[in-house]
């Protein structure tokens, strides 16, 4: 009886699951569909397919400027937050110092802090410091707010590093510095890639913090948001479709990288005599 009840409930469960997935993914499907619809966002079902909106999109300079801005901000945020996050993760993993628990909480706090608070406080700081709002302030905002993400990922990675390997390196005559570059960092490679991809995507579609810190140069999400106030055009659908495609590609890469990491670990576990 216990074995038959899940089977009997399966169709119900499947229907329920279908509804949930439809709720999540149908809007995306519609969005992608209408990027190919000649008659714009009106009119259902779409009758004539076209690539015109994409042509229009590719000729739209402001959009591409904003894409470039977003890429610059995201890439430099990855560098900044990975650099500082690695130092914080090393301190959390290896050092003992007074106030370590407080330090950990302070580093990880931005993870749960609402973007509005982070953005507003950074804005007030910029005004106080007399810094003009520009891509630089956006970059500083993203780069610092995402340190917590880098720290968590890299800390988890450091905890998995086999300390005996580092001892073996010291034992063989490598200085602590050589050991860090030759042993610790290569062992962290997967965590660095994973954290980098995560930070990159988070920065790419960040709105709340960006909104407070943006100067004259828009990032892509703010560009889109600005245009939406003047009504939806299928050009927005087209750019969203492209973003969606790139995001999916990045997610796939991320999972591949992770799976490979888990794969070798599982392999080593199995092969350990």
């Amino acid at each position: 009886m216990t074995s038959s009840s899940p089977t009997r409930r399966a169709p119900l469960l499947a229907t329920y699951a279908a509804f949930v997935f439809a709720f999540i993914y149908l809007p995306i499907v519609v969005l992608i569909l209408y990027s190919f619809n000649r008659d714009g966002v009106g009119g259902f079902p779409p009758r004539h397919l076209t690539l015109n909106w994409y042509a229009q999109l590719f000729a739209d300079a402001p959009i591409w400027d904003s894409v470039l801005n977003s890429l610059i901000v995201a890439a430099s945020s990855v560098v900044l937050s990975l650099g500082l996050g690695l130092l914080a993760a090393l301190a959390l993993d290896r050092a003992t110092f007074p106030g370590k628990a407080l330090f950990r909480r302070l580093v990880l706090l931005p993870l749960i802090l609402p973007g509005i608070i982070t953005g507003l406080s950074l804005l007030m700081f910029a005004v106080f410091a007399g810094v003009h709002l520009s891509l630089l302030t956006v970059f500083l905002g993203h780069g610092t707010a995402l340190i917590s993400v880098a720290t968590t990922e890299l800390f988890a990675g450091l905890q998995k590093v086999d300390r005996a390997q580092e001892e073996a390196s010291l034992d063989l005559g490598a200085t602590p510095w050589q050991t860090f570059w030759r042993i610790t960092l290569p062992n962290l490679k997967l965590s660095l890639i994973a954290a980098g991809l995560l930070i990159f995507t988070l920065s790419m579609d960040e709105i709340a913090v960006t909104f407070f810190l943006i100067g004259r140069d828009n990032t892509l999400p703010l560009q889109i948001w600005g245009r939406l106030r003047r009504g939806i055009t299928p050009e927005i659908n087209a750019v969203s479709t492209l973003i969606f495609a790139v995001s999916v590609a990045l997610i796939v890469i991320w999972y591949r990288v992770r799976a490979r990491g888990l794969g070798t670990q599982a392999q080593e576990l199995l092969e350990r005599p």
């Binding site: 390997q165 001892e167 073996a168 034992d171 490679k189």
Partner: peptide, 13 residues
């Protein structure tokens, strides 16, 4: 002084 470690601690990379 050099050491042969219990689980060898070879560098996997």
């Amino acid at each position: 002084v050099n050491t042969v470690f219990q689980n060898y601690a070879l560098f996997p990379h």
